[in-house]
Design a protein around this nucleic acid. Structure first.
Lengths: 208, 208
DNA sequence: GCTTGTGAAGACCTTCACAGCA
DNA sequence: TGCTGTGAAGGTCTTCACAAGC
């Protein structure tokens, strides 16, 4: 049985709300309550979870502590992941100093830049390495996930190197259409695209 | 006839690739070629565009210049939009100094922070206003879109103020599940969630 | 001849609704 | 009684495949 990608993408959201509930002192939740928190139907939550097992108890709901542990295991979050950053410009520096990755088990262990005038500088405790050493540096640090924050014009060439270095997960901040083989997963963070689709709904339809 | 939301979300991508093609000197493109660039089937592009009109010519394809203009009009991108930022911390400052919004017609015209020690400071040519004046400040500057970059714990209360001030489009950077009425559109930018679903595919399935 | 635009078919995802169990 | 887990039904989105038209 294979799990739809949309389902996998919802699991981290469930996990986050469950963690929040637990911190608030709640120990048990049912699919209805969790759904209200997440703006999702209760049936969807139950169906999503059913792809992975039977975690609830009829008549009661889900033990939050247990469900969190199960989800963390399913998603592979019960270990740490090594992340590298390519492109240490303004955006890259903001990303590397973002304190939200570490507590979730993502460690930024290497960073790279093509500009030789910044190579050798230290950022967030890491020495900037030249992009020409990308493949070697990734292997040395056992990197599994790479953040791309280079100018759009160079994004595809960087991604090609990552792919040939065997990287399967990429988080791309460059605002450009990129191409990767089907076995490589790429997520794009692109606030401008988000804006550009929202304006559609702000624009009254033409009556012309 | 109403247009599926997924379709609207793809249009800005089409627009971007078309712009890139035009800059490269191409004047005409067919759905096949555009699809290869965007990793989308040609049928999908034709179907998507057909929700809005008939922009192509059989046997030839699409005139890029014309299609760009049409898409910009459909999406409401043939005008400028006023954007405000709430939360001028590290992340907020990175966002406000991001040079990618302006050229696309999005002008950041106001920024707000709850911390009275930064209120009155100037960031990117804007004076930081107190969050307590949020509703008034938004109206004064005719803001249509708001970027939320406050700590998670305060995101929902800020969003509630935005909603009651009549804002219909929100870009939220706080890593938290938020609730808005159905007529308000909220997009979440959340790199940690992106990571957390990618690790699923990096994690070999349990054989236990 | 080549490519669009589009009904129809198919795939995929969500919701329903209820048997089964605590 | 209350809520889960899940087949079946329903809805939405994607792809097919071809008539129409440049």
């Amino acid at each position: 049985m294979d799990v739809p990608e949309v389902v996998v993408e919802r699991l981290p959201r469930y996990l986050r709300s469950l963690t929040q509930l637990l911190q608030g002192g709640t120990e048990v939740v049912n699919s209805q309550q969790l759904g209200e928190l997440l703006q999702v139907t209760s049936a969807q939550i139950r169906k999503d979870l059913s792809y992975f097992g039977r975690f609830g108890k009829q008549g009661r709901g889900y033990n939050i502590r247990n469900l969190i542990e199960q989800l963390r295991h399913i998603l592979g979050l019960d270990r740490t992941w090594n992340v590298a950053l390519v492109g240490v410009g303004r955006l890259g520096r903001a990303i590397i100093s973002y304190p939200g990755f570490q507590p979730e088990g993502f460690r930024v262990v290497a960073c790279f830049d093509a500009d030789s005038s910044v190579v050798g500088q230290t950022v967030g405790g890491l020495t900037i390495q030249p992009t020409s050493d990308l493949a070697g540096g990734l292997a040395k640090e056992h990197v599994q996930i790479v953040i791309v924050a280079v100018p759009s014009a160079h994004a595809q060439e960087v991604i090609d190197v990552l792919v040939s270095a065997g990287i399967k997960s990429i988080l791309n901040y460059a605002p450009v259409a990129t191409q990767v083989p089907p076995d490589v997963r790429i997520r794009n963070i692109d606030p401008v695209l988000a804006f550009q689709s929202m304006t559609y709904y702000l624009t009254p339809p033409d009556v012309s």
